[in-house]
Design a protein around this nucleic acid. Structure first.
Lengths: 169, 169
DNA sequence: ACAATATGTCAACAACACTGACTTATTATC
DNA sequence: GATAATAAGTCAGTGTTGTTGACATATTGT
């Protein structure tokens, strides 16, 4: 005579909901990077190369230290990957005019080409997901992702100039 | 005399929107895994250990091959990590009753304890993000993530029994 | 002059993935 | 019952990506 549905207790639902979120993030991120990974492997590169190419493309003339703080890796880790990309002609280094110690990074035409190719698969994937989910869902998606990331990084997406440069080239 | 806002063309907005999504996924996923990574490092483990512990906890008595198909890694890669976890008493292997070739995996009490500890930080992060974003946002978040992941994996979250077992132990 | 900063480099190490080849049980099939 | 297929494990080698630590060089700021 009570509620026909067993109506599992809220705590269980909450736990299940949270676990699903954890797993959805895992699977979505894996599949999201999968296609680009395969493309990179054909070029003899890895995901780290993609990240460097991506963020240099996104922030032309970015300094090495700014790139390091975005990627949050050591300069030795970056050096290996960046050195390859410079040697192979995907990125050029310009000596800073204001500060001559800086090496400002920029994609070459070749670099821009591979960046387009690599990111296109990911853009397509997001675009399709956005289209199917609808505008309200996109707002929700963004709101939750913003809530998941660290507050320091969050600022980057909130219109304000993020800490440590960004926004304008 | 026209629109006071320069109103950047739709193509640019779309491109910017997609790039933001790519970056938000990158930052959110990195920060999402960061806390657990630090905890694992203190135990002398890596992220791979967490994934194994997590999915064995989620699917008690899962077979090795089913676990492999969830993780999408080779058995040699799993072997290293799983061997450690069994040796250190976090996971036990049961000989399959129906099929004696299978080694069904299960967390020990020790394994359950560390699983709770590791996942707790992630659950907290998601819970806070969910709470702040609200119910509609959560639905949107889920819808977009579902659209991003591969269709074969998507089924796992749509109530139907996923391909390759799941759901019930 | 001297200290701080930006970048680069050498060396060693660890985690985590891969391929390829092979072994051992166990189950299924002819 | 012999034979093939499957589940799992193992050994060996390799590559990418991250880490520490130490040190070098050029440039800027005090």
């Amino acid at each position: 005579m009570s509620d026909p549905r067993p109506s599992a207790n809220p705590l269980f639902l909450r736990e299940e909901e949270l676990r699903q979120a954890i797993e959805m993030l895992f699977f979505a991120y894996r599949d999201f990077t999968g296609e680009a990974d395969a493309m990179l492997a054909r070029h003899g590169f890895g995901r780290a190369h993609h990240r460097v190419i991506y963020f240099v493309g996104r922030h032309p003339m970015i300094s090495v230290s700014d790139l390091l703080s975005i990627l949050r890796i050591t300069k030795q880790s970056l050096s290996r990957v960046l050195g390859q990309l410079v040697r192979d002609g995907f990125i050029v280094q310009h000596r800073g005019t204001a500060d001559g110690r800086q090496r400002l990074l920029e994609l070459t035409d070749k670099g821009t080409a591979i960046e387009q190719q690599l990111t296109e698969a990911q853009r397509q994937r997001i675009a399709t997901a956005y289209r199917r989910a609808g505008g309200d869902a996109v707002q929700g998606f963004r709101a939750v992702l913003l809530g998941i990331m660290d507050p320091t990084v969050r600022a980057r997406f909130l219109g304000n100039a993020p800490p440590g440069d960004e926004g304008s080239p």
